[in-house]
């Protein structure tokens, strides 16, 4: 199996188990206040890290390029309450333009 297959199988199994656990474990296991508070911040930090790394990193070095134009346009579109598909489309369009102009 190639690495991508490990990712497909591993992600699918792990994510299903996590969902299933919520439906079967006793409620108090997951409702400790500290666990809940940390859990609430996990998506925020991971999504933040993914935005930053996918925008400004290239493998293990930092890089400022056309992608930054795209993400700034996406932020502006989100600020103006554009729907998600429009945000993604505008970001791609702006980044592609910057790529061809630079």
């Amino acid at each position: 199996m190639t690495a991508t297959w490990y990712v497909v199988v591993g992600t699918s199994v792990l994510c299903f188990l996590i969902k299933y656990v919520g439906h079967v474990v006793p409620a108090h296991w997951l409702s400790r206040p500290r666990v809940q508070r940390i859990n609430a911040y996990v998506p925020v930090v991971l999504l933040g890290a993914l935005v930053a790394v996918q925008t400004a990193a290239s493998k293990t070095h930092l890089a400022v390029d056309h992608r930054l134009v795209g993400i700034l346009v996406a932020a502006a579109a989100l600020k103006l309450r554009a729907p998600f598909p429009v945000v993604v489309f505008l970001a791609a369009l702006a980044s592609a333009l910057a790529y061809h102009l630079s």
Binding site: V45, G70, V87, V88, A92, A96
Partner: peptide
Amino acid sequence: AAWGLDAAVPAAFLGLLWPRLRDRFTQLVA
């Protein structure tokens, strides 16, 4: 890159992150 796909991915993440940034502290955490 020629089609902007490499920026569409972080834009998608930003779209998922945005509605979670309700208060100032959460924004700082992000």
